[in-house]
């Protein structure tokens, strides 16, 4: 086994582990914002590691995999913001365990 091969195994395995952690986090976290922490951060790094690791096994695929990685890193936070805004604007969706909530105060000030 060459060095590249071992590196590819390690990176791919780590990526799969982080993707599993993101699924578990989305399942276990109690409210929508905390689910978002697991669903955004962990899937981003998990996808990056997993796709890059598979690219190390098959180097001719690296350009296209790099494109997928770039797209995921650029768009994942955007969809998370959109969902977070939606969750905060809708009173029935908002979790009630927030210790402080500055955004609610500043919204209340406008009206």
């Amino acid at each position: 086994m060459s060095f590249m091969n071992i590196l590819a195994h390690v990176v791919t395995g780590l990526g799969a582990l982080v993707l599993f952690a993101s699924g578990l986090g989305v399942f276990r976290m109690p409210d929508v914002f905390n689910k978002m922490h697991a669903g955004t951060k962990a899937t981003t790094l998990g996808s990056v590691l997993f796709l890059f690791g598979l690219g190390l096994f098959e180097p001719s695929w690296l350009p296209k995999l790099f494109l997928i990685i770039l797209f995921i890193v650029l768009t994942n936070p955007v969809s998370s913001h959109a969902l977070a805004r939606a969750a905060h604007n809708e009173p029935s969706e908002k979790p009630d365990n927030l210790i402080i909530d500055d955004l609610e105060e500043s919204k209340g000030g406008d009206q």
Partner: peptide, 15 residues
């Protein structure tokens, strides 16, 4: 955080 038996959270929104 995810793999703890009880997830330690203390959430809040700050400006």
């Amino acid at each position: 955080r995810i793999f703890r038996p009880v997830i330690p959270i203390r959430p809040g929104i700050v400006r």
